[in-house]
């Protein structure tokens, strides 16, 4: 089995999992960059989650300022997320993660000075997918 096949199979199973288990929509499997059509180092998935997954602490403060009353329901607008599917037994280095970040277009939905983020989807053979956010650099931490 060629390695490219292997990588695409992982991406396909993550996409499947996002669609049916986590109810994501507008899912797309990308093997080439949407900006300049250059090949990506790894296939990436873009999709729209059903609810907001990440909120920067600065944005949270802004939201609280614009909704000063506790009765207000704070609106949630999900944004398109980028997903990097990998397998649990793979060995990844910072360099390989950096090359993935370099191949991604800057996030349009966020403030311009924010670093890029990717949702790391780690697949296990028993079909468990574990998702972690990964940022291209240091970000202000969120309170847990």
């Amino acid at each position: 089995m060629a390695e490219e096949d292997y990588v695409e199979h992982i991406a396909a199973s993550v996409l499947d999992n996002l669609r049916y288990q986590h109810d994501w929509t507008e899912l797309q499997l990308l093997t080439h960059s949407p900006v300049d059509n250059s090949p990506l180092p790894r296939p990436l998935i873009t999709g729209l989650p059903p609810r907001q997954l990440y909120l920067h602490p600065d944005d949270q403060i802004e939201m609280l300022k614009s909704h000063p009353h506790p009765e207000d329901r704070i609106p949630e607008t999900p944004v398109v997320e980028w997903v990097l599917p990998i397998h649990l037994s793979e060995k990844w280095s910072l360099r390989s993660f950096a090359s993935v970040f370099d191949s991604m277009p800057p996030q349009v939905s966020d403030a311009p000075d924010r670093v890029r983020r990717v949702l790391l989807a780690t697949v296990h053979n028993d079909s468990t997918v574990v998702y972690y956010f990964m940022h291209d650099g240091i970000v202000k931490p969120r309170q847990n």
């Binding site: 499947d16 999992n17 049916y20 288990q21 028993d126 079909s127 468990t128």
Partner: peptide, 13 residues
């Protein structure tokens, strides 16, 4: 044994 591929563990999708 096993895991439902759209569930957390028990296949109840």
């Amino acid at each position: 044994f096993g895991k439902g591929n759209y569930s957390r563990s028990e296949p109840n999708w």
